[in-house]
Design a protein around this nucleic acid. Structure first.
Lengths: 181, 181, 181, 181
DNA sequence: AATGAATGAGTATTCATTCAT
DNA sequence: GATGAATGAATACTCATTCAT
């Protein structure tokens, strides 16, 4: 389905893939859009749940941020169809995207934001940065990495992009050696 | 059109908005998809052209990067419909996105990449960073800012996001005062 | 439908005439052309089947030829809409006509040809005649009679044309009395 | 044009083939149908005119009938596109066909009918035959030959079908040797 | 609960025709 | 007379959704 896009996939195809009749879909979902939304919501929930379990065992705030990035890319990189839905389909349906942004994504997001805040409090991260904005920027960089991967021929592991991305974001682009001199 | 999405906009609506008959559309575009593609291409071309004129007058590589980010956000922020097309519609049509990525976007992108490389050569930016990857990250951060703006109620100026975004990316998130101690 | 021609009849009209919704048509036929083709094929099949049952009970080869002609004209003459489809619509769609000629019509035709051959073997018909060509000529004469009827105001029975047509074809136009003298 | 059928040929294509602009067509023809009708009429007129010149020089009524058949098939066989229009296109448009049948074709036809009548008067052809009906039958046989040729791969000369067709029609199918015994 | 046949609203595209130049 | 850009009516086909079984 992800291959052709949600719009270009018929309810019949989804039903057949699920091994049920067309009408059965409507016993569990209000309509086609609801099917996409609930599916995305479910997956996101399990991502968050599984992610939290791991992140809670990570002590250092900086490591949590690193781990968050790795998990995010690993989850998406594990299933290209899924990645396609999240990176491409989700943002097409603006209504869906808005709702998702305001519910699940916000929750997902708030964890990243809190890690940044904690890292600030513990002195690892500059206090001049707005946690929310910084989280957005980090998220955007990861998002771009994921979208690039989906649009590419996927001959590399998506999660391998986590480390270099965090290097730039944590340490910045500026050359301090030069700047110091 | 941007409000409802390209798919949900009929050719008749577009024709009426353009003040021509339905059939006239097909004198200038092969089909509905071609209409979207050519429109996006044209706009991107003019963005690049206008952008280059300004960037060429900017001496410092770091300033060029700053200016690039500002121009990118200013262009998109100037017309919310346009921003919607670029941030939402474009990436829905995967074929279109791929083509766009491989033609116009690559060109647009290569400028940013070259500015980073120049900044590296002149010592402003760490030589350990891959210009291509760094450009991707910067672009991703800007992209996220733009998408957020489109999905928001747009009660702030998009280009105002350029400065704080560049602060994080250029200087990094890490607190050096603390790190130094 | 036959009145206005197949092309000038919309699928909606056909659906309404059949008492079903437009989309229902496409559950049973691939497209509009397929509808015409399958309809023609079905009718031809039943013509052949019913015809054979009668012809098998006819002993004399000459009588079989007569009966064949009568049945052909009687079938077409029984339903002017049907006749219209066969005489007019069928031969418009060249692809359809070719396919029909090479499948159903060939079968239909081969029976007539075999009757002529049998009649030759039993001495009723001149051995110098090519069965295939003679069948074509007979068929052409019947075809013209049918087409004429369709284009006329149909104030006579089409099958009444069978006898005089066969008189000319079997006995020839030449006046033997005169020729003999 | 004959290849794809008249309906599937656009006025633009016809205009281009004629080396004029689309609109120019409408200076000489009322509409697309009128174009087909006038073209067919013109060609038929020249056929009749040229045919008459030849037939008038043919003394024997039987030979005239033979010549008529030869000319008919030779004319159609000379240009497969033309044959296609006459055998396929013409009878699709029922209105056109009716008009043609009642004007040009009737005239064309009346000549054949008159030759048969003359042949009857001079004793060559059985007086029991209706000239009109006999002409129809002869015409039908020729028509079938032409249609077959159009639908075939045309690897034989159409006019070669004239002689065997006339043999059947003039002398009949019945074996007189046998019948006499 | 499950089915899947039937529905019918919705739309991109074509092309004969017009008419200002 | 000639042009050809612009027109807009007309239609096959799809597919989300329903509901009788």
């Amino acid at each position: 389905m992800a291959r052709n896009g949600f719009d270009r996939t018929t309810v019949s195809q989804i039903a057949k893939a699920a091994g049920v009749a067309d009408g059965t879909i409507y016993l569990y979902f209000q309509n086609k859009d609801d099917l996409l939304q609930k599916t995305i919501d479910d997956i996101t929930d399990s991502f968050i749940q599984e992610g939290l379990a791991i992140l809670e065992r990570t002590a250092s705030p900086i490591d949590r941020i690193r781990k968050f990035a790795e998990l995010h890319l690993a989850n998406l990189g594990a299933d290209e169809n899924l990645a396609c839905i999240f990176q491409i389909e989700l943002r097409h349906n603006m209504r869906l995207m808005r709702e998702f942004s305001q519910k699940k994504l916000r929750k997902y997001f708030s964890y990243l934001e809190s890690y940044i805040r904690q890292a600030q409090e513990e002195g690892y991260i500059r206090k001049s940065l707005t946690p929310w904005l910084t989280a957005k920027i980090l998220f955007g960089a990861l998002d771009e990495a994921a979208t690039n991967w989906v649009l590419s021929n996927r001959d590399y592991k998506l999660e391998d992009m986590a480390a270099p991305t965090l290097d730039v974001l944590l340490n910045g682009m500026v050359d301090r050696t030069y700047a110091a001199s």
